[in-house]
Design a protein around this nucleic acid. Structure first.
Length: 510
RNA sequence: GGCCGGUUCGUCUAUCGGUUAGGACAGCCCCCUUUCACGGGGCAAAGACGGGUUCGAUUCCCGUACCGGCUACCA
């Protein structure tokens, strides 16, 4: 096979895009870009009952934030438009009809009530969930059990019906999965899935095969939850006569919840206090907002990096990769078979690493907006750059910059006076009073000058600098945190430094 | 229940038959730091179980157990 690599991400727009979805996008994207191929996004909106306004737009915003731009999609356009299955509705029926004509599928006229009745009737301890399969179909109302005349009549009267695939009696369907190797299924164990719904829309099963064929998809990657229906898809490729064009499959392992077992859901994030969606998602019906990684303060570089490492590694100890590096190193063969529990602590570590790795310039925009969100307007860009450089090593998430650096832009909102009081005495009071005088006369205002002066003054008063630096820090930043005290004093300047010392001295007098 | 998939430290993972089973996150200890971090050093921590195959199995095969996914006119 020597055709162009074309992969697709096919989400159904029903809500926020969660971790697993973005990882599927990422693996698709990496594989496509590595092979000089195309990355297509196709919207699988065949279930009109589940339409959610804003969900599609959200998906594209998310991809943009992650830097995973599609080559073709409903909004990017492309030679195989339309890319929304709802807009391709008219095209599917003929394939379903073709399958019926050739004996690979059949019409079924059972109503939803009939199906419910069937499930109740055949339900037993050994078979808790009866399927519409090769045994049951003999007992149902379909073009296999009805005579031709009746079928024609029902069809002519437009009686609601679906088209179901007719699973062969006794065959083994197998295919080679890029991650799992050969996977086999016995057709007697697979049910007669609906291909075309009564409303004329295809189900996922038909649509995915038809569109992957029409859009010349070369490799199909999706979550492991699709494995059980893979034999249906493989058979469809064969029955439609497209076997030679069938894409290579890869079923990705699931991302599991950190505690217990089971796949990660939005609820787990709410429960355990971490994001699951890539970006904030507001449910249009309930107006409930679910926090995303972006809004939580993650960098897209870190988000992509941590997602890639959930189930893949390059075979070395290396853990930090940029997107271009991932494109170069990625390989589907090195993707794990087993699911991975999501570890939020590790996720934060990736972000911390990226904050450290990225230069001041790359962080500026994000940090500035965090300050603005906190009500602090940044007017001095040079100052902002200095502050970022000084505190970034101690920031894990973007909002940490506010906590670590707000005092550079405004006087501390509160002073942790209780941390100073117990050890406060006249000597110290005297020292700081003198310090104000000394600093006021300083002509040099660099870190080391300030430190030197401070220590000389302490020595002259026979005081240990260690007993004075914590109070000084609290005067400048309000609490026991932040970078080196003299760095802070140097940056906020003479006037502000003296002002803050005076302010705390006043507080201590009360 | 059935079908399919999975199984190495608490977590993410390396190992393509021969290793003191390596790394990272988290934890603990020490150093550095006159705040808190960063950083450096160290400790503790794993091949689910039972059979094979083999000179030798974490690695290959089978079985068991456990976990997960699917079992809709949803994707």
């Amino acid at each position: 096979m020597n055709r162009k690599v074309r992969v697709r991400f096919a989400p159904s727009p029903t809500g926020g895009l969660h971790l697993g979805g973005v990882r599927t996008v990422l693996f698709n994207y990496l594989f496509a870009k590595q092979n000089g191929g195309d990355f297509i996004v196709r919207i699988e909106d065949t279930d009109q009952g589940r339409f959610v306004t804003g969900a599609e737009e959200y998906i594209f915003n998310t991809l943009k934030w992650c830097g995973l731009e599609p080559d073709e999609s409903p909004i990017h356009g492309g030679p195989f438009a339309p890319y929304r299955q709802s807009e391709r509705k008219a095209g599917y029926r003929r394939y379903a009809e073709q399958l019926v004509k050739e004996g690979y599928a059949y019409y079924a006229f059972d109503t939803p009530a009939d199906l419910d009745a069937m499930r109740i009737q055949f339900k037993s301890a050994e078979n808790p969930s009866p399927q519409y399969n090769q045994n049951i179909r003999e007992k149902m109302k379909n073009s296999l059990t009805l005579n031709a005349a009746d079928v024609s009549k029902l069809l002519a009267e437009h009686v609601p019906h679906v088209v179901r695939i007719k699973m062969p009696l006794n065959e083994t369907v197998s295919f080679t999965d890029m991650i799992r190797g050969e996977v086999s299924f016995h057709t007697s164990q697979v049910d007669d899935k609906v291909l075309l719904k009564a409303d004329g829309m295809p189900t996922y099963h038909l649509a995915v095969v038809v569109d992957d064929y029409l859009m010349k998809i070369s490799h199909a990657f999706r979550g492991e939850e699709w494995l059980p229906s893979a034999p249906v898809h493989v058979l469809l490729w064969k029955y439609l006569g497209w076997e030679a064009d069938m894409p290579q499959w890869a079923h990705l392992p699931l991302i599991l919840k950190p505690d217990g077992n089971g796949k990660l859901s939005k609820r787990d994030g709410d429960r355990l206090g971490f994001p699951v969606f890539a970006m904030n998602w507001t449910d249009p019906a309930t107006h409930e907002t679910t926090t995303g990684f972006k809004e939580k303060g993650f960098l897209p570089e870190a988000f992509v990096n941590l997602l890639a490492m959930l189930g893949w590694n390059d075979g070395t100890d290396r853990e930090i990769f940029s997107l271009p590096e991932l494109i170069e190193k990625f390989s589907m063969e090195r993707v794990h078979k087993g699911g991975a529990k999501f570890d939020y602590e590790k996720a934060k570590w990736y972000n911390h690493e990226w904050i450290r790795k990225l230069g001041v310039k790359s962080l500026e925009f994000g940090v500035r907006s965090e300050f603005e969100k906190a009500g602090i307007q940044i007017t001095d860009g040079v100052l902002l750059g200095k502050v970022i450089g000084l505190v970034k090593d101690r920031c894990t998430l973007l909002p940490d910059f506010v906590q670590q650096g707000a005092f550079f832009f405004q006087s501390p909102g509160s002073i942790d006076i209780d941390a100073v009081k117990p050890k406060w005495d006249d000597d110290r009071n005297m020292f700081f009073t003198e310090l104000i005088r000394a600093y006021a006369l300083s002509t040099l205002w660099e870190t080391h000058d300030l430190e030197k002066e401070f220590k000389e003054l302490a020595a002259a008063n026979q005081l240990k600098p260690g007993d004075l630096m914590l109070p000084f820090r609290i005067m400048l930043v309000g609490g026991k945190f932040g970078p080196g005290v003299f760095d802070i004093a140097a940056i906020i300047g003479k006037e502000e430094t003296i002002q803050r010392i005076k302010h705390t001295l006043q507080l201590l007098q009360l």
